[in-house]
Design a protein around this nucleic acid. Structure first.
Length: 162
DNA sequence: CGAATGATCCGA
DNA sequence: CGGATCATTCGA
């Protein structure tokens, strides 16, 4: 689950859809061409956030997943509301909508997700039989475009495309 | 400095 | 399928 104790109170959601992004080996990744000011968190320590702004109006959040110097992150694409996040899972179905619902912006990039108001915590385990693995969404081109690096919980209304 | 573009979403 | 809308990135 993802918890944000922010200015609007505590908001908690149960993550049901994610995608993995690598570095130099993944043309679809922001980290493909090496670190920049924006993507620096992707090359930093694991367990921190990487939030970026795109299409002039949306923010998307990732969880950095590799050791320092190695790019790797998990894009949070969908969730179900638990607390303070409304009661409609469809409002959390999609990375832009998820970030918006929690009130996340680029100010929340590079935060320590273990010890900060924005945190990732354990949630009840999901049986492997309910986890679906598919290709990632919204990628233009690239050799990794068809890799099955998207995971979601079968049947959840918080999944962006079903 | 200018131009292109994007890990999206919504509405027609 | 196109438009919204702008920070970031790359090339000149």
């Amino acid at each position: 689950m993802l918890v944000y104790d922010g200015p609007a109170g505590t908001r908690a959601v149960r993550l049901v859809e994610v995608e993995a992004y690598l570095g130099a080996a993944d043309p679809a990744s922001h980290a493909y061409r090496g670190p920049t000011r924006r993507t620096a968190p992707m090359f930093g320590p694991p367990g921190r956030s990487y939030v970026y702004f795109v299409y002039g109006m949306y923010h998307c959040m990732n969880v950095v997943a590799e050791r320092v110097g190695v790019a790797g992150a998990v894009l949070l694409r969908g969730a179900e509301p638990l607390e303070g996040a409304g009661d409609d899972p469809r409002a959390l179905a999609g990375p832009g909508k998820l970030a918006r619902a929690l009130g996340l912006t680029t100010a929340h990039t590079n935060m320590d997700l273990v010890r900060s108001p924005l945190s990732i915590r354990d949630a009840p385990a999901v049986p492997a039989s309910r986890v679906v693995r598919t290709a990632r969404i919204g990628l233009a081109t690239g050799s990794t475009a068809h890799q099955p690096w998207r995971f979601y919980v079968r049947g959840s209304l918080g999944v962006s495309r079903r």
